[in-house]
Each structure stands twice: as structure tokens, then as C-alpha cells.
């Protein structure tokens, strides 16, 4: 019994030595998320416009129904979204939209600091998603 007590005490004493802390002091030190991390969405741009062809597959695949798309055609007959909005308050970051997209026009970035002060700021419009 005494042996176990000493064993336990020595483990805690060992952890007391410097260099055993696993804490990351967050605002000062930031962890870099992995390549496959599912953070904020990004619409992939292509020359002067977005890659998106407004096929609605992402909005259909979305289990949280957070994607709003309004489609239109430009003068050359290319279909494009006039409105492309993601409501981050509803988004569950499942990545199904990325999987569903046939032209790889949407992807997920490592951006995870998504806190905001106003409700409206959580609605990411096309312009914000293209950045």
C-alpha cells in the first residue's frame, strides 16, 4: 500500500517539473489546424468571378439547410449565383457541401476564430466567402 502511495506521489512530483505542461496559452499562442480541418468556408475564385455554377447541390446536401443560393445567367450564358449566403449560426461544419460540389467551387479553410458580436455578422455573403 505504501509503495503505491509513493508511486502516485512521485508521478505528480514528476509532473511538477517544468516542461510537463500541455496547456497552449491560447490568445498568445495559436495552434495550427491540420490540412483537413473543417473551419470557415471559402468560395474558390476563378479569374474575375467565382467557380460556382449555382447548381444547388451544396444547398441540397446541407443537413442544416444553412446555404441560400439565388441563380442567374450572365450574357455568355454561364450560370452563376447572384446570392450565395451561409448562415454560420446554423452551419454544423460537416463538410457535405464540399463533398457535394461537382466543380470544387467551395472548400473549407483552417479559420476557426468565428466569434462575432452581432447576429448579422454570422451571415457570410458571397463577397465575404470569396476572400
Amino acid at each position: 500500500m505504501i509503495k503505491e502511495f509513493i508511486q502516485g506521489l512521485s508521478i505528480t512530483a514528476k509532473h511538477l517539473l517544468p516542461g510537463h505542461s500541455t496547456t497552449v496559452e491560447y490568445p498568445k499562442v495559436k495552434l495550427k489546424p491540420s490540412e483537413r480541418f473543417r473551419g470557415l468556408h471559402r468560395l474558390v475564385p476563378e479569374q474575375d468571378h467565382e467557380k460556382c455554377v449555382a447548381c444547388y447541390l451544396c444547398a441540397t446536401a446541407c443537413p442544416a439547410k444553412c446555404i441560400t443560393i439565388e441563380a442567374d445567367e450572365d450574357e455568355s450564358g454561364r450560370k452563376y449565383p447572384t446570392v450565395y449566403q451561409i448562415d454560420l449560426l446554423r452551419c454544423i461544419f460537416c463538410g457535405y457541401c464540399v463533398e457535394a460540389c461537382p466543380v470544387e467551387a467551395i472548400e473549407m479553410t483552417g479559420e476557426y476564430e468565428l466569434a462575432n458580436l452581432k447576429r448579422e455578422d454570422f451571415t457570410y455573403t458571397k463577397e465575404r466567402l470569396l476572400k
Binding site: 509532473h15 511538477l16 505542461s21
Partner: peptide
Amino acid sequence: KIIGRMQTRL
């Protein structure tokens, strides 16, 4: 502080 260190916190 000490308990934090012993539990590998800060």
C-alpha cells in the same frame, strides 16, 4: 499553481 502543474496544466 502546484496542482495545475501536477495535472500538466498551468
